[in-house]
Structures are given as C-alpha cells and as structure tokens.
C-alpha cells in the first residue's frame, strides 16, 4: 500500500487560466488558512531538518571559530573541510564506512534472495508442512530482537563468528517479515499465468524466475531498501557482537568516537554527517519505496 499513490490521484491540478490552490476535495483553500498552513509547515521543517543543518554547520566550522558562541552563529564564518580530514586521522572512519557498506550490501542480497525464495515456497508451492513453515516465520517475526540478543550473542560465540562482519549480518540476513511480505506479494499475483506456464512445461525454477519474480519487483525493492537502511543504521547488535575497533561499522565507530573524543564536537559532527549523508541521498532518490515500506511494514508488523 503506497501512501503517495493513494494520495496522488486526488490531486486536481489547477487549470492554467485560473490559478488557485485547491484542497484534496477540489475546493478552494482560503488565503488566510493557506498562510497559516505554510507558517506551521515551516516551523515543523525547522524542527525536523534544522538539527541536521546545525550538525552540518558545526562540521564545517574551522578550529579558530567559536562553536559555543551565544547568541549562536548559524553559518560557518569560514567553511572548511578540515574536520573531515581530522576525523579520518583520529579513527579509520572510511574503513568503518566500508564495513557498513559491506554489511548493508550483504544484507540486501541475502534478504532479497532468501525472502523471495521462501516467500514463493509459502505462497505457490504445494507440499506437506507448508502451514508449519508459515507459522515458523510468523513466530519469528513476533519475537522481539532485544529479548533474544544475549542468546544470539552466545550462539555467535559457539559458531566462532563473534567479532566478525559475517556475525553482524547473519542473524538478520533473511528477515521473517520480509519473507511474509514476499509471500503476500506472490499471493496477490493471478495464478492463471503460472498455471499456463506449468501446462507449457515450465518447471518450478523457470516459473519462479521468469514469471513470478518480475511481477513483484516493487515489493522486492521495498525489501532491499529496508534491508539496506536496517543494516546501515543498526546499533545494538553490532555493539554486542563487535569488540575489535578495526572491525567496527560506522554506527559503532561513531559511538567510539563520541566516547573517546567527546570534547571535540567538530569531529563528532563530521563523523555523523559522513554516516547520514548516504542514507539521505538514497531516500531522496527512492522516496516512493520508503513510504510504501512504511505502509506494508505497519500492516504486517
């Protein structure tokens, strides 16, 4: 369920010869109300985006500029990238970024492949034990990660995978919710096409790859984006499983930077900008799927 798709059809573009602003019911919005709306929108904008801009501004302020001044100066007097060089000298921030990228990339691949395969099996294939398999995924989805994190840690130790990036990826590499999302997507496809292919002699693998999978690209994109964001942003699990600073991901590295060099606000600011910029860029390009994922995740989760 995509929010934007739901909202969009209601928009009625104003005719060119009579420019006026209408609401979602096609009625005219009064000027006074419109002004009030924009004032409120701008206030919320300052509240939600302002903190990110302040962080960006702090990261661009040079060593001689007073970052504690009162009243505060919102723009850097002499913008410099010096802090980004210094943060890389202090902690291996680019290695951390690479580790995060590896973890997030692997999480995308395993979640897309694993949940598409399992979702297809749950939705389409007839076999004994299918209901039990579905139930297993539903139960797995309901278990809160925070409640089992200690057992996951001991399991990882027994496997000898603690303090490795594989250990970071493994527990979430095929999310149960993603499997159920894919199952629903496959269930919503008309069965007749696959039946026709079946009669034509296409075997399971061909029907899956050539017919079913191309029809659920949208859901697959949602799974991919949320897998990337989840792995890139995750904090608690990597904090528990990683102990060697050379293996840190960006979030753990930032926590380390903050704990060790807490007084140097410019450095921490530069680090957070490095961590958040790729995701904001991703979001800016693929908003549609982010919003769609919220709808699907909320209904299922």
């Amino acid at each position: 369920m995509s929010v934007l798709e739901k909202v969009r059809p209601e928009r009625k573009p104003a005719p060119a010869r009579e420019p006026r602003v209408t609401d979602e019911h096609g009625r005219r919005v009064r000027v006074g109300e419109l002004a009030l709306r924009y004032v409120l929108l701008l206030a919320v904008l300052a509240l939600t985006v302002g903190p990110f801009l302040w962080q960006l501004s702090t990261s661009l302020k040079g060593p001689t500029e007073d970052i504690y001044s009162s009243p505060p100066s919102f723009l850097p007097g002499d913008p410099t990238l010096h802090n980004y060089e210094r943060v890389a000298d202090t902690v291996p921030v680019w290695d951390y970024a690479l580790n995060s990228l590896k973890v997030a990339g692997a999480n995308v691949v395993t979640n897309c492949v694993g949940s598409a395969l399992a979702g297809y099996a749950l939705a389409r294939l007839r076999y004994r034990g299918r209901r039990a398999a579905t139930l297993a995924f539903v139960l797995a989805m309901l278990v809160p990660v925070e409640g089992i994190i200690i057992a996951q840690f001991t399991t990882m130790r027994e496997l000898g995978l603690n303090n490795t990036l594989v250990g970071v990826v493994l527990p979430g590499c095929v999310g149960a919710m993603n499997v159920l999302l894919m199952r629903n997507a496959f269930l919503n496809l008309p069965y007749e096409i696959e039946e026709a292919a079946f009669v034509d002699g296409a075997h399971v693998w061909q029907r899956f790859l050539r017919i079913a999978l191309p029809s659920v690209k949208g859901t697959l994109a949602v799974v991919a984006i949320f897998a990337f964001m989840g792995a890139w942003d995750d904090f608690l699990w990597p904090l528990i499983v990683l102990s060697d600073p050379s293996k840190f991901t960006l979030t753990i590295g930032l926590n380390y930077l903050h704990g060790t060099f807490a007084n140097d606000e410019r450095l921490v600011a530069a680090g957070t900008v490095i961590a958040v910029a790729p995701l904001i860029a991703l979001f800016a390009c693929l908003q549609r799927y982010f919003f769609r994922g919220v709808g699907e995740g909320a209904v299922k989760g």
Binding site: T110, V113, G114, S115, L117, A118, Y120, A121, L122, L125, A133, A136, F137, L139, A140, V143, G147, I148, A151, Q152, T155, L170, P171, G172, C173, V174, A176, V179, V204, F208
Partner: peptide, 17 residues
C-alpha cells in the same frame, strides 16, 4: 526454496528464544 529462510529463522530467532 524455503530452506535458507527457515534455517536463519530457526538458528537465529527461534532457537535463541
């Protein structure tokens, strides 16, 4: 088809639970 997903859910969610 279901094996990878079941394996992960079993080993890293249901068994830890």
């Amino acid at each position: 088809f279901a094996a990878p997903g079941l394996l992960i859910a079993g080993a890293f969610v249901l068994y830890p639970f």
